[in-house]
Write a protein that binds this DNA or RNA. Structure first.
Lengths: 246, 246
DNA sequence: CAGTGGTCTAGACCACGGT
DNA sequence: CCGTGGTCTAGACCACTGA
C-alpha cells in the first residue's frame, strides 16, 4: 500500500469508479497540491493493483469533471480552481482597450448569524444553525458593478473569523481553500431579471426600480456538500452571456 | 466492406477519430434514421477492421456530443434532436398548474431577400446572397411571449418555398430536417438585455422601452455549416435560466 | 535518453433486455 | 438463451517533454 489512501469506497461500484473516488479524495484532502502532478498512471495502477486502462478511465472521469488536467509527456496535474470567469462570464467588464478587468471585491459587512429557513435549505443545514453572512461590492475603475450577499456554514468556515477585514481577497474561492481547506468543485447558477431596490440600488448607483440581473448560486465542495449560497445583483445593461446548446 | 461508408478521413488522424467521423457522416447522410439503432460494436469493429475498443471510443465521443445514445443490452441509437427546450429553457412558460406549455408559433411574415452584410457574416455566405426571412410570434394561452426574426440560406432551404403559410410547424428544426434534410446539430446562443421598440414592443404587448431579453442564435448542421441565424426577444420579466459551472 | 501520457489491440467475463 | 453494451486485463507501440 502506497502513500495514497487506498481505502476504496463501496464494494459494489465499478473498479474505475472506486479509483476515481479515491483519487478525488486525495485531491480533496490536499494529498496532492493544486498545480502539482499526481503519480504517473503506471505507478497508480501498481499501487491500486488494477490495470492501467482502469486507472486511465478513472483519470478521464476526473479530467471531464475539471479536477485534473493531462499534459502529454509531462504528467497529470491537479487543476487550479479557475472561478475567475464564473461570475464575470455573465457581464461585460472590459476596459476601453478591450482588456478584461478583474473587479476589486470590497467587503461591506460581515457577521455570524442564525440561518433563516431559506438559507438553511440552500446550504442543507439545520434552520437556525450558525452561518457567516458577507456583503460585498464589486468595483472596477471606481464604478460599482455587482453587489453580493452570501452565506457560509459557520462550522466549515470558522477559520475565517480570524481574518481581518482588510485581509480578504478579491476572489473568495481560492481563499476558502487556503484558509479553510474547502475547495469549490462546482456551482449552479440561477439567473433571473429583477429590479434594484433600497440599499442594493444605492450601492450600484442605479435608480430604484432599474433592471438588474439576479444570480443565485449554490457552490459545492468536492464531496458535493453545499459550501456557499449567494445572491448577486448586477446592472442588467451590462449583462452578456453566451451558451452552447446541443 | 459493409453497407456503411468506410471511406475514412484524413490518414494522419487517430483511428478512433476517423471512425468517429465515418459514423457521424453516416448519421448526417441519414444512413441510419433518428431513433433507430446503429450496428453493434462487434459488427462495426469487423466492418472497419479495427479493435472493439477503438469503435467504443469513437462511439463514446459521439455519445458525449449528443448524437448517439447507448442502451445496455439493446444497442446504440441515433438520438432524436431534442430542441424543444432549447429556447424555452430561458423563460418561464408554465400554466397555472405548473405544467409546461408549448407555445404556438405564429408566422407573421415570410419573404426571400438579399443577405445584409451582417446576416451574411452570421450565416457564412456571400453578402447579397438569397436568404429566407421569417418573422414569427410565439404565443401561449393567447399571450405573446417571444418575437423571432430569423434568416436561412435560400440555397439550402428552397424546399420551404413550397410550404403554404398555414402548414408551418410550431417547431422549426424538425421541419427543416423533414422538408429540407438539414438537421440542426448544435447552436450557440448569445444573451443580452435590450429594450422593446416599435413593432416588437407592440407584438409583445409591452410598452416601448420595456426591458426584453434578446437571444441571438446561430444554429449549425451536422457538418458545422451555419443553417440559421435568429434574434429572439422575450419579456424580461419571464426570463429564468439555470446553468452549471465547473 | 528515460518517463510521461496517447493510441490500439485481443481477449475475458459481467449485466442487462428480450425471445 | 443469445446478443447487446459495460467492465477489466495485459501488453504493444507511438508522440511528446525535459534532462
Amino acid at each position: 500500500m502506497g502513500s495514497i489512501s487506498t481505502h476504496m469506497t463501496d464494494e459494489r461500484l465499478p473498479l474505475y469508479q472506486r479509483v476515481r473516488d479515491s483519487l478525488a479524495a486525495g485531491i480533496a484532502d490536499g494529498a496532492w497540491k493544486a498545480g502539482a502532478p499526481i503519480p504517473s498512471e503506471q505507478k497508480l495502477a501498481g499501487e491500486f493493483g488494477v490495470a492501467l486502462g482502469t486507472v486511465r478511465r478513472a483519470i478521464t472521469e476526473l479530467v471531464d469533471e475539471g479536477l485534473l488536467e493531462r499534459r502529454q509527456g509531462k504528467g497529470t496535474f491537479v487543476r487550479t480552481a479557475e472561478f475567475r470567469n464564473s461570475l464575470f462570464r455573465f457581464f461585460r467588464f472590459r476596459a476601453d482597450d478591450g482588456a478584461e478587468i478583474l473587479p476589486e471585491g470590497r467587503l461591506l459587512e460581515r457577521r455570524v448569524e442564525k440561518a433563516s429557513p431559506e438559507i438553511a435549505q440552500y446550504l442543507d443545514i439545520r434552520s437556525g444553525a450558525r452561518v457567516i453572512y458577507l456583503h460585498r461590492l464589486r468595483v472596477a475603475d471606481g464604478a460599482p458593478l455587482v453587489v453580493e450577499h452570501l452565506w457560509l456554514p459557520h462550522d466549515l468556515f470558522n477559520a475565517l473569523d480570524r481574518i481581518a477585514d482588510a485581509d480578504w481577497d478579491d476572489l473568495l474561492y481560492p481563499m476558502y481553500e487556503r484558509v479553510c481547506g474547502h475547495a469549490v468543485a462546482r456551482a449552479r447558477d440561477h439567473l433571473t431579471l429583477g429590479r434594484a431596490t433600497g440599499n442594493d440600488a444605492r450601492q450600484l448607483k442605479l435608480k430604484s426600480g432599474s433592471p438588474v440581473v439576479q444570480i443565485e448560486r449554490t457552490a459545492y465542495g468536492l464531496n458535493d456538500r453545499p459550501l456557499e449560497w449567494r445572491r448577486s445583483l448586477g446592472n442588467a445593461e451590462l449583462f452578456s452571456y453566451t451558451v452552447d446548446l446541443k
